[in-house]
Nucleic acid binder design. Sequence first.
DNA 1: GCAAGGTC
Length: 617
Amino acid sequence: MRVLCVAEKPSISKAISQILSGGQFAVRSTPSKFIKNYDFDYPQTNAQYTVTCVSGHLTSHDFPETHRKWHSCDPFSLFDAPVETYISKDSKDIETNLTREARRADMLMIWTDCDREGEHIGSEVKRVCRKAKPNIIVKRARFSAIIAQQIHNAAQHPVELDQAQADAVEARIVLDLRIGAAFTRMQTKTLQDNIGQVEGVISYGPCQFPTLGFVVQRYVQVKNFVPESFWYIFLSLSRPNSSQGNVETEFKWRRVHLFDYDAAVVIYEHVMATPTARVTKVVETNTKKWKPLPLTTVELQKAGSRFLKLAPKAVLDIAEKLYNQGFLSYPRTETDQFDPQFDFMTLIEKQTVDPAWGAFAQGLQQGGFGTPRRGKNNDKAHPPIHPTAHVANLHGNEKKVYDFITRRFLACCSKDAEGSMTTVDVICGGEAFYATGLVVHQKNYLLVYPFDKWTGNQVPVFAEGEEFQPSVCEFREGTTTSPKYLTEADLVTLMDKNGIGTDATIAQHIETVINREYVLEEYEGGTKYLMPSTLGIGLIEGYGEMGLEKSLSKPHLRREVRSCLRVGLVKMVAVVDKAVDRTEHGAGLQRDEDQARHACGKHRPVSRDVRARPGAV
DNA sequence: GCAAGGTC
């Protein structure tokens, strides 16, 4: 029996060949320069194996010539237009290889990733192979990790391809295309016809718009924020500390603060009548700062933005490059738990030669190792991101990303930081206050992972029952502060939580809304914030006015959507128009704009003001 | 000139 195995990408075809053949395989080149065919015998099932792969999806989808040109049809007809499925130019070589190999095989075994897209890619492979050899037996290998026992098990107990999952992906592909193309053409045309300043394409995408929506939502929250005053009692004591001399310890009010001025004053006056503090309780508890979870793609992008100041897309691009050079494991993973059989020690050993963290890695070998925490996510396809080799000659951002991933891995393999927390409770004038102090005893993982901070502030020694006169007991006023604009890390979190895009595409969507100038980047104190442009706000407000939720649940769906869209687009035009008006007459705006441009490091043409920062309101 | 999802 000849079995043709097809994986989703080159790394997987190589890895399963290694395992199934025990390293004894022959390599053949293929018409595609990225892809190799591996041949070997697999006596366990009495078969001759050839393992090859595709490179993601084999097919592309688009409208036929009659509907491909923008002005060839009414955008609404795109919902009924035929959609063609074809092998893209880049995939022709892969198709040729599959066709040749399928002809001489009795069985096709699909080894794509065990996720929904993998099921669809499997169905694409099946179609090509069935065309080459109609009676080929088709099976699906199910595996959750590249681990010998699992791979053998998958090869010996194949299942069926899940056509329902593949169909679901096909439906998603076609819907995204129809909706994206129809809405993009329609809104671009409508806005261009009605607002002179609009140039270029105004795209609509089912991921782009929710992404933009988060940015606008936060902008509205900031804009509508009204500060509120509150009042509180500030209590502190200066007392000599064993090591640092006189230190001031602040005791926080258990009521935190009150928004009712009169009530706060009454309480304060009551305290001032007998302003002696008595210590009611001193509790010292052991506490830990947990080491980080194993690294997923989403976490890598958030950390990259927060700690390394790199855009999510940039971090992912670099990680992919390092993966292709063999330095990192596969960087697109949702998994934050290592397989119990994962070989940590071999990887730790490789890092012992590093000048910066080699000694720490040695410490892990000599008893410092702790099994990594297990998160809640497992995509059943890839392990958490980790270094697969030690590299010493990286520079710039590549070094930053590699260092971060390696430190994170070593931190995961270390132990939680340990310390003790002291809480001192006092009663002063009938009101409860408390002070807390932290002493770090064992830094453990923090030694290799400087991105987490856990600093101690010692409190002086207090004894239960002791009394003291506070150094300061004041009535103070504060105000609530406005929320901040979104950072890229915040946006990644929101998209991930709400299922907008996938781990591999979230960064792309953010880049898209920035490239289309729906979202602008602004810097404040070294942190990058995202805020919507006038156009971005107009688009979201316009769609908000359409009431799509309501109409989509009604019968006569198409007609409803159509009229809704028409009404919505008219409203959107009005909203954008008004926003442009504000921008043009907004005082002091030019200066802000120049600053924004300077910060972005790129110049926007003046004629595209609608894509600039919204006017002062 | 449109989308989002794979991957190189």
